[in-house]
Design a protein around this nucleic acid. Structure first.
Lengths: 239, 239
DNA sequence: GGAATTTGTAACGGCATGTAACGCACCGCG
DNA sequence: CGCGGTGCGTTACATGCCGTTACAAATTCC
């Protein structure tokens, strides 16, 4: 349950969320659930989701709407759940960018198999090309170039970051002014969940602070929240 | 009964309040009850509520009205109690933002199970994204930057606060000019209730005073209310 | 395949936080 | 006016969380 894929289940039916969630957890996935578009977006904010299982029928915004919205911003694989086995829905779903679909009532094993297949397929595929919007992130005078993986200090000096430091900084820049738990940070940077005595986040934070804090003994940019995690305090402006 | 979730029961029926309250307390919850919208709002002022059990039928403002009002300001999970098992009510309730609903007469165990499920889900969910409004709180010349966790003294010197001191000050700033009991302060800062001989609030107050009071022997900002708690006396202006 | 770099693990030390204990202020009482 | 009692401020530790260093494992780069 460490380096496992993080699956997001979006369904308004509590039974399905709970049963499917437990089933997938038993089979080596991390699982987060959401009942609607709002919770889905929140979960996508909070975790690095590997794949979304999306119900077609939802109160409020329905699955097709959400699917289209997701595809506009991201490449996250989607498996649609549909009560109707109609061919048209299948086609519409796939045309909107769903990677597969499963008709309800479904066999959990079948869904799991399709999840694995889609993930396997996805991992073979190219990494997402430079996601268009927001190539630069500016905070407290610093400039982070997301495309070139470059960081420039306020006095315009290039600072070289290791991969891990860069990923950590990106996680912070993507979620500023929020307390992020070590678990969330590991999910964002490494796609895994924290082991009981995992201190790797702490030392990466320590190393990153040494490079970007004026006084790493009194950090201003990355604040520690005791027994809570860390918080990136400056406002971030993207362009 | 220490680090337990604080449940607010809103129902006009004393039987239900008492029985359900005792049942939940026996199962490891802290419980506060309210008879109507007014008492509900008071309880939300006084405590850090983890979840609200809200009756649909209430004298005065009914549950749906309150539910909509709550959702306008907060993300606190809501479980609706409804006498009618009609599907329409369920849908209306859920669309207004209730997280689950239980039909009366209900089995307390079932309600408890749903409470736990909602809390589990909620804990996975996002903190509110950088809530834009009200990032600064000003009092007696001091400026507290809620986004950056910064405090500046009247003569514009940065004062570093520990996590605990910061949380305590936020609790005061959120509830100025009111007497706050130690129990309430613990609830706001740590989300737990006070143990019989718990003095931890006292010493945090002592430490905070040392940093923000001109003369910590004659405190002006944080006054002690004998056998009552503490009171944050200055007016707080937010922006 | 070997060297350099990066990253995680273990360990130590420092600091924040809570517990215990002491002393003082306030209060009702004789 | 003295006297205990209660409640609070504070100091002195104990505990646990966190920052950091040192080193080992893993990864990358030739």
């Amino acid at each position: 349950m460490d380096n496992s894929p993080h699956i997001l289940i979006v369904d308004d039916d509590r039974e399905i969320r709970d049963l499917l969630g437990r089933f997938l957890q038993k089979h080596g996935c991390r699982v987060t659930t959401a009942r609607d578009g709002r919770e889905m977006r929140a979960a996508l904010e909070d975790w690095s989701i590997a794949l979304i299982v999306l119900d077609l029928m939802l109160p409020g915004e329905d699955g097709l709407t959400l699917c289209r919205e997701l595809r506009a911003n991201s490449e996250i694989p989607i498996i649609m759940l549909t009560a109707m086995g109609e061919e048209t829905d299948r086609i519409v779903g796939l045309e909107l960018g769903a990677d597969d679909y499963v008709a309800k009532p479904f066999n959990p094993r079948e869904l799991l198999a399709r999840i694995k297949a889609v993930l396997r397929r996805g991992s073979e595929r190219a990494e997402a090309p430079p996601a268009d919007g927001g190539q630069f992130a500016r905070f407290a005078g610093w400039t982070l170039d997301l495309a070139r993986r470059h960081l420039r200090s306020p006095d315009d000096v290039a600072v070289t970051l290791t991969t891990g430091e860069y990923e950590l900084l990106v996680a912070f820049v993507d979620h500023p002014q929020r307390v992020l738990s070590r678990d969330q940070l590991l999910d964002f940077t490494r796609g895994r969940s924290a082991a009981p005595f995992d201190r790797s986040v702490d030392i990466q934070v320590s190393r990153l602070r040494r490079k970007i804090e004026a006084d790493s003994a009194a950090p201003e940019l990355i604040k520690t929240v005791r027994s809570g995690g860390y918080m990136f305090t400056p406002a971030v402006e993207r362009s």
